[in-house]
Computed example of a mutant assay.
Amino acid sequence: MNTASIRSRVMGAAVCVLMLQACGGSRSVNGLKETIERFSEMPEYSIILDDMKVEGNFVKTYLHRYRVYYAVKIPGQTEDVQFLDIKTELLEVPEDVYKRHEPDLGMVIAMKTSDGRTTTTPQPAGYQYVGNPRYGQWQTNSSGETFWSFYGKYALLRDAFDVFDRPFKRKYYNNYHNNYYKNKTPYYGSGKVKTYGTYGTRTQKTRPNFYQRAQQRQAQKKSSFSKKVADRTYGRSVTRSSNTTRTSTSRSTTSRTSRSRMSSSRSRGFSRGGK
């Protein structure tokens, strides 16, 4: 079976699960779990949180979109693999899964490495391939800094991830691998200011549409809240005005009634005095 046939078969199966409506199936309530299960038989994969959103006001639906990079074996070769990628539709996930990964936009949230290990600890996209001699090697530049360089046949990996928009230095990899990966701790960068994830400086530059949409949603919430406050204020104002009018009318009626009674009393007194 050639590479095109492998890609067609894998993508067809993936689309059937990840694009459920097109395949006529019921909608998944845990898109992340379904995606992991779909690619579990692949030699290697990384599932990146490509987008996320919440729909609905009273009854909320939590949605994820994933970008999956996965390896397939090359026919006739026992060791080498080829990497392919696929982007899913927005898939429904449970609320707890959504909130757990709110800080992880643009990061790998599930992966399987070439040695068969799996993890769901968030990490920057592409980190799992760095340091693996199968895919590239460390080189030293003229300044004496060591950086990672992918082999030409893995250009997809080199070009795919935001982390590789400049030479990836070994000192950052060592910090990640020794202090975070081994301890199964999410890694958002080495400085005080986060580089990766939803609140990372690089993510904000590479995914501006997500933040624009978030700002619009926040503005809509503020507008809706302001309208509710205005409606309540207007309602109280109308109620006070109505009460004031009724009170004023009541006082006016009482005053007229009192004056009428006094006038009648005086008239009867004058009448009795003249007899």
Rank of each mutant, 00 (worst) to 15 (best):
A14F: 14
F39C: 03
E95I: 04
I48A: 02
R217Y: 05
T195C: 02
C16L: 05
Q77K: 10
F150Y: 12
S258M: 10
G191E: 11
Y176I: 00
Q212P: 00
G131E: 11
F164L: 08
V15I: 08
S40Y: 10
G197F: 01
F58Q: 12
V238A: 12
Y127N: 07
T146Q: 15
M1F: 11
S242D: 15
E102R: 13
V59Y: 04
Y172A: 02
H101T: 10
Y70Q: 08
V72A: 12
S258Q: 14
N2A: 06
T78S: 13
Q216W: 08
N209D: 15
R232D: 12
I47L: 08
Y154E: 04
T88V: 04
D115I: 07
G235L: 11
P133F: 00
K73F: 04
Y135M: 02
S250P: 02
T119L: 03
S260I: 10
R213H: 12
A4Q: 13
Y66V: 08
S242H: 15
P43E: 04
F58M: 10
S260G: 14
Q21K: 14
E37C: 13
Q218W: 07
S241C: 06
N2W: 03
R236M: 13
G152C: 02
Q218C: 01
D159Y: 04
A125I: 02
T247R: 15
E89P: 00
F225C: 01
L91P: 01
K112F: 04
L18G: 02
V229E: 15
L90A: 08
P103C: 03
G189R: 07
E37L: 15
R256F: 09
S248P: 00
L156E: 05
G136V: 10
L157G: 01
C23A: 14
T121Y: 00
D165A: 05
T244A: 15
S223E: 15
G106C: 05
T249Y: 08
R100F: 10
A22L: 08
Y151A: 07
A230V: 10
N30R: 04
F164Q: 05
Y234H: 14
T185Q: 10
G25M: 06
P167W: 02
A125C: 05
V15M: 09
R27S: 08
R261K: 14
V229M: 15
V108D: 01
G56E: 07
T245G: 05
V238S: 07
V163Q: 03
Y70W: 07
T61Q: 06
M1L: 13
T245Q: 13
D159M: 06
G136C: 09
P133A: 04
I48Y: 05
S242M: 15
S250R: 13
R158C: 05
H101Q: 11
T254F: 11
G144A: 06
Q137W: 06
P43I: 06
Y98C: 01
F210A: 10
E44K: 04
D50P: 00
V68Q: 03
I6G: 00
T257W: 09
F168A: 03
S28D: 01
Q220W: 09
P43V: 06
D165T: 11
G12N: 07
V163W: 00
S190C: 08
R158F: 05
V238C: 09
